[in-house]
Every structure is written in C-alpha cells, then in structure tokens.
Nucleic acid binder design. Sequence first.
DNA 1: ATTGAAAGAGTCTCAGT
DNA 2: ACTGAGACTCTTTCAAT
Lengths: 158, 158
Amino acid sequence: MSAKLNLDKLDYQIIQEMMEDAEISYADLGKKLFVSGGTIHVRIKKLEELKVVKGKKLSVDLKALGYDVIAFIGVYLEKSSLYDTVAKELKKIPQIVRLNYTTGNYSMFAEIVCKDIQELRYVLHDELQKIKGIERTETFISLEESLDRNVVVLPENC
Amino acid sequence: MSAKLNLDKLDYQIIQEMMEDAEISYADLGKKLFVSGGTIHVRIKKLEELKVVKGKKLSVDLKALGYDVIAFIGVYLEKSSLYDTVAKELKKIPQIVRLNYTTGNYSMFAEIVCKDIQELRYVLHDELQKIKGIERTETFISLEESLDRNVVVLPENC
DNA sequence: ATTGAAAGAGTCTCAGT
DNA sequence: ACTGAGACTCTTTCAAT
C-alpha cells in the first residue's frame, strides 16, 4: 500500500525529534544528531517533498479558549453506501473536527468540539437529526483526556 | 470552569489564522490583520504565557511512514473506579496515542496507530488482555479518514 | 550526500509615541 | 498598547569536498 521511501536512520531520528519538539532549530538538531545544520535542512526538505512531513500545526488549549466539551459520536447509517453523502453533510458542521469511516458497530465515527453541553445538544438534536441517511447516533462525552501523543516512529535503529 | 481570559478580536484572529497556517511570519500576519509584526509578536507571547497557545506540532503523514492502521477502541471496565490504574497500563503501550475517560457505553475510549493488522492484533490480544480491570473491548478500524481539522475559534467578531 | 560560510528572512527587544 | 528600527537568530543557498 505505502510506496517505497528508503528513509534512513537519520530521517527517522529527525522526524522523531521534531515530533517531540517541533520548534528546535536545524543547528541544535544537527548537534543532537551529530551532523551539520545544513544536512538537517536538506533532509527536512526531502521529507517535505516526499509528503512524509506535512508541515507544522498550531497547538492550542481548547479548554482555555472556552471549548469545554469534546465528544465522540458513533453514527449508524441506514445503508453504508450512504457514507459519502452523509460525510459531505457532516463536514458542513464546523463543530465536527474529525470523521472516520469504520468497521464494527458504527458505520462512521466523528469527533466534535463544543463550547458547552447546550451547543453539543444543539448539534446532536438540530443538526444531525436533519441529515438523511443517519439511522441513529451514540454519543460519548469526554470527561477527561488522559493522553494525546504521537506514535513512536523509530524502527530497529537508535 | 475556564478562567477569565479577556482575549480581544485580534487575539482570536491570530489564533484562527495560525491554526490555518502555523508557519506564516509575524510580518505577513500583521499585514493581513492590519497591525505591525511587533504587535503580533507581543500577542503571541501573551497567548503562550496564558497557555492558550501551547506551541507547534510537527504534522506527519503516518500512512506514508508505513502506519497503515488507525483504530478506535471502546473499553468496558469491570468497575469504573479502575479507570486510573487501567489508564496507567494503557499509557505504557506506545501504539496507543490517545485516551479519554467517557460517558456512555464505554468507560474509556482509546485511539491506536499500528503498522499493520498484525500489530493491531498483537496489541489487542496480547497487551490489552493482560491488563486487569478491562472487561472487554470493541474495536473500530478506520477505513478512511474523511476529515481532520481544527475547530473555528472566532466568536461574534470577524 | 555533507559541510561551513555567506546571504536572506524571521524573531525579538526597545525607545518613542 | 502599538510602531518601527536595530540586534540577533534561524533558514536557505551554494561552492567545495
């Protein structure tokens, strides 16, 4: 499925280090990995061209901004062939931040971020119920996020 | 729940713009929002001190790196009071990247990233079954991620 | 491919408003 | 609080290896 990439140990080390600290400078990262800053630069450009590294994302504290409710929604479809049309409708709801087509009980799995329970209730009741093709939904409100991290991408090396 | 922050329109605009493009320079962002680069700098430092902005994260294409399997795991606990001890064990499994304590059918909700189905099977069968307190689990393998975006943080303004 | 140095661009500080 | 300019740091390019 995934194309041959031929990444070496240094490539993986760069990705791993930058997943832990995306703001480290090329010079400092070079020191840490015993190569020059120029080499780090060349490798990162290569990884960006290969679309392995997609860029940087701002990390914000949603709770601090007043988004107190994170919830997961399991969606049952009337027919699984309705996935594309239902997905298109769900994407129009700005509170829905993630959507996966899944195996198992639910046809699709959504993640939603809201300011409060009232807003969640509004989206679940007024927005989702309007969408044709959704049989029913099950909502799991997050009471606590205990973990949110990156996968470890170092293989046998290092 | 969330403390009084007193962010103004410019603060929200900066966060919104940087969520869409985390790598824009202060000068360019200033031009876009009709203030100087120095003002953008001051505001971002303030937002970092307030812990609203937590920094930047490297965005990588897991599929390109050979992590072909993303799955969600609903965990049923024998007693919900076992959450902390089970969470501690789950955190030891590097493939588990996210963990939430939830309301609803499941006591907890995990997200897992694996290289292939064999690795997923290994974690589900060999690692999870070892953990005391887990009654059973339900796994939803993602066949397609249709959406992964940030919430829109602009209130009445703009 | 990697290096080191020079050029260019960005961040950070600060005095003035 | 915002600005603009100077100091500093980082990224980017490139000739040499």
